[in-house]
């Protein structure tokens, strides 16, 4: 295909792809009585957004989501980086077995283990707590796997230089390995934050307390509560998507790197 034709096809398809999202955005800014109109809005209004911000505890939902997403991201990065460093660099009996065990859980997804995980969380008293939202979301083989692959490529000499200075393993990890892996850690941070901000199934299952509702659960309950008041449901939906889009715009390059690498296993 000649370049110009390719470009035109690309532009058209790209616009068709984002059209539903643009439509959603415009609908939120329409006066309520024009919600289903296909013409341009007669005027733009913030009424729908203001109603949701004042009448629905969406702020609370956002704070809950932020607490959970940030906590999971930070803890997961620290733990995964330590584990990956050990699996890539330190010699200890059983290392290969442990690595195989971790990799074997790669394909296990939340919907599959949801019911028994719920029973475990219940026995541990984790239901309806922040810990219950955070802890089970931390542990996932993907991050460990990706970091280990990266650590295998770090030249040993760099670490050995640190060894001569009498660094302990903890300092060696923190002062040599972590700074060297900043790009991967940044990629994973974007990935983890997005995944947890967008998480729905586990928070839905693990919490009943309205004060612990995360934003995705919050907007899905609005859907039931305000049934046909689409303008409010959509306004809340758009607000919930804003942090996702901000994280995406800021971390796009990093995110794309992480996804491309995941295909190269």
């Amino acid at each position: 295909m000649p370049v110009r034709l390719r470009a035109i096809v690309g532009y058209v398809l790209a616009m068709v792809t984002v059209a539903p999202l643009v439509w959603l955005l415009v609908a939120v800014l329409r006066p309520a009585d024009e919600l289903f109109a296909v013409t341009l809005p007669s005027r733009l209004t913030l009424d729908n957004l203001l109603f949701v911000l004042t009448e629905v505890p969406i702020g609370r939902y956002m704070v809950n989501s932020a607490i959970v997403s940030v906590a999971v991201t930070v803890i997961a990065l620290v733990l995964h980086s330590m584990a990956a460093y050990a699996l890539a660099r330190l010699r200890f009996p059983g290392r290969q077995v442990i690595f195989s065990m971790i990799v074997s859980t790669l394909l296990v997804s939340l919907p599959v283990i949801l019911v028994p995980l719920f029973l475990v969380a219940r026995e541990l008293g984790l239901l309806d707590t922040y810990a219950g939202l955070i802890l089970p979301a931390i542990f996932h083989a993907f991050g460990i796997f990706l970091l280990r692959q990266y650590y295998l490529t770090i030249p040993r000499e760099l670490e050995e230089a640190a060894d001569l200075d009498g660094c302990g393993y903890l300092r060696r990890w923190w002062q040599v390995v972590v700074p060297l892996s900043r790009p991967v850690l940044a990629s994973l941070a974007v990935l983890f934050f997005l995944a947890n901000w967008n998480a729905f199934l586990w928070p839905l299952t693990a919490t009943r307390d309205p004060d612990l509702r995360v934003v995705q659960v919050g907007i899905s309950t609005l859907q039931g509560q305000y049934g046909s008041a689409w303008n409010y449901v959509l306004a809340a939906t758009v607000i919930a998507a804003v942090p996702t889009l901000v994280a995406f715009v800021l971390g796009q390059r990093r995110l794309v790197e992480a996804i491309k690498t995941s295909g190269l296993k």
Partner: peptide, 11 residues
């Protein structure tokens, strides 16, 4: 093309 994937499945 990638944008829809960034948004949550609930949205």
């Amino acid at each position: 093309f990638f944008l829809p994937h960034v948004i949550s499945l609930v949205v």
